[in-house]
């Protein structure tokens, strides 16, 4: 079995966000980069499958030079190969442009029986790339998956929906987007971290895939501007340490008469 995992490097979720000089993207100074949290579930699932059934795991990422590191971080947990599509970042924030680049990379490194992605990339929070890659490859996908059973011809996936789960039988090849609950991502071992440095990474340029990054970027989604949200004015504080009953009464009154929400 051959598995691809699409992984992306994102700002640590605890980062302070500042608007950069372009006014359209963040200021990257001082940002710590991490594997997108949902991609960790995707990585773990692929490694578990390799361990239980035998598989070759290829990580694929598209991004600037520094993103080679995300592949190293994945290797520290397991896996076999890495493909880094090195770009200028022109396609950042444009899910369809990214999906076209990743699809070309998947085709070049493939074929694959299973492709894992995260349900969404934290930060740009699009939640689109997995389904788009599946469509471009003309294969099925199951999104927001919290459990998988692997059968002979296909897999059964539990997918999170409002108020419940859909249990889906899907044939291979397909794309699965990972949701929290799918597994417990392991921590990299020291041995893994050392070994990761020597793992093979194939570096390709977007042009090597026959695509024009500058033309793609922003063709289907442009970030016109980026702003910090307006500061919220201070709320009303009710002290309920002494008389919780009175505090509760006052809160209920405010919610009914002032906020008019109950």
């Amino acid at each position: 079995m051959r598995i691809a995992v699409l992984v992306t490097y994102v700002p640590d979720t605890a980062s302070t966000i500042k608007v950069g000089p372009s006014g359209k993207a963040i200021d990257e100074a001082g940002i710590k980069w991490i594997i997108s949290p949902y991609d960790e579930f995707a990585v773990e699932e692929a490694i578990k499958l390799k361990e239980s059934k035998g598989a070759e795991v290829t990580y694929i990422t598209y991004g600037p030079e520094r993103d080679q590191q995300v592949l190293r971080e994945c290797f520290a947990r397991g896996g076999d190969k890495g493909v880094h599509v090195v770009g200028t970042g022109a396609a950042f924030g444009d899910a369809f442009a990214i999906a076209q680049i990743l699809t070309a990379a998947v085709k070049k490194a493939g074929p694959f029986d299973l492709i894992f992605a995260g349900v969404k990339g934290v930060g740009s929070d699009q939640g689109l790339v997995g389904a788009m890659v599946a469509e471009l490859l003309d294969i099925p996908h199951v999104a927001s998956v919290t459990k998988i059973e692997y059968g002979e011809a296909g897999i059964t996936a539990w997918r999170e929906i409002e108020g419940g789960q859909e249990v889906v039988e899907v044939s291979l090849p397909c794309v699965i987007t990972a949701q929290k609950g799918l597994n417990e991502p392991r921590y990299p071992s020291l041995k893994g971290i050392m070994a990761a440095k020597k793992m093979p990474v194939e570096s390709v340029k977007v042009a090597d895939l026959g695509l024009d990054e500058a033309a793609l970027g922003g063709a289907t989604c442009r970030w016109v501007s980026l702003a910090l949200p307006p500061a919220k004015s201070a709320g009303k504080i009710i002290h309920g340490e002494q008389d919780p009953q009175a505090a509760a009464r006052e809160l209920a009154r405010l919610l009914r008469e002032e906020a008019k929400v109950i």
């Binding site: 966000i17 924030g93 934290v122 929070d125 989604c221 442009r222 970030w223 980026l226 949200p229």
Partner: peptide, 12 residues
């Protein structure tokens, strides 16, 4: 970015 910023976007 977890609601820490607001992006104005269009479809190119």
């Amino acid at each position: 970015y977890s609601g820490k910023a607001l992006a104005t976007v269009d479809g190119g």
